[in-house]
């Protein structure tokens, strides 16, 4: 698999806080990667570096064969990188439907009228059809998260970055989310998913990495990674010294 996204020796620090030291990552085309790690490990910052809202201190980001390190977030979006924010960022004064129209028209460079049908269909798939004409600012947190995902999908991305979309979902909603993400994967979209709901990740990703102290401390098959003593100690607070 030729990589769709490569990070080369990415470093970032905020004052004394180091969030990334020489991080290397290659994401295969069509691959789904899970990222876990303790709070403050720099997971969301990594998404910022990939989408262009955070500038790395050093290193290089390449997407689909071209260097994008210096591109603005809007250019990267139009190239095919979409992100759902951990803290939902809806266009609060616009309707749910209009939120998607914006993403499809600008993120995918299409005419406004050409995207109406796709956006309406996407709202159905994401369980928001009955709230299509509601102002996004009036949505509950859960629906705002659904809107984040729907809006990211509306840009028809090649690479989808999901930041804690499963938190707060009840079991059957979580199963529906996993099914939706499987559908999205089936269309060839590559995914990086930051999530604390580990079972949702294990059901969806090909590879799991653990971010801690500014670097990846473990990487590989999700089921093996999650059982490694080091990960259990750092991430779950379970003593590694158990026999």
């Amino acid at each position: 698999m030729a990589p769709i996204l490569t990070l080369e020796r990415i470093s970032k620090r905020f004052g004394a806080v180091v969030v990334a030291t020489d991080i290397d990552l290659a994401l295969g085309d069509g691959e789904a990667l899970g990222i876990i790690g303790p709070n403050g490990a720099g997971k969301t910052t990594l998404f910022g570096i990939i989408t262009g809202t955070v500038a790395p201190d050093a290193g290089r980001v390449a997407f689909d064969g071209t260097d994008i390190t210096r591109l603005t977030p809007e250019r990267r979006c139009r190239l095919g990188i979409a992100r759902s924010f951990q803290i939902p960022q809806p266009f609060t004064g616009m309707t749910v439907f209009e939120n998607l129209v914006v993403a499809a028209a600008f993120g995918d460079g299409r005419g406004e009228r050409d995207v109406y049908a796709d956006c309406a269909g996407l709202l159905q798939r994401c369980g928001l059809a009955d709230k299509a004409n509601r102002v996004a600012g009036s949505l509950t947190l859960l629906d705002r998260k659904r809107l984040e995902l729907a809006r990211a999908l509306a840009t028809r991305p090649k690479l989808l970055l999901l930041d804690e979309v499963a938190g707060g979902l009840v079991e059957h909603e979580c199963a529906e989310l996993v099914a939706l993400i499987k559908d999205v994967r089936a269309t060839g979209v590559s995914i990086i998913w930051i999530e604390h709901v580990v079972h949702a990740l294990l059901a969806s990703v090909d590879r799991l990495v653990v971010l801690h102290g500014g670097g990846f401390i473990a990487a590989g098959d999700p089921h093996i990674v999650i059982r490694s003593p080091q990960v259990r100690e750092i991430y779950m607070g379970i003593a590694a010294a158990e026999p």
């Binding site: 977030p73 139009r78 924010f85 960022q89 266009f91 616009m94 209009e98 914006v102 993120g107």
Partner: peptide, 24 residues
């Protein structure tokens, strides 16, 4: 127009507007 869609999005959330491909 298309500009209005972009402008309203910028009014509501500039970060999200950028992240959705709008040349703010």
């Amino acid at each position: 127009s298309r500009y209005g869609l972009a402008l309203t999005a910028i009014r509501d959330n500039e970060l999200a507007a950028r992240s959705n491909g709008i040349d703010v």
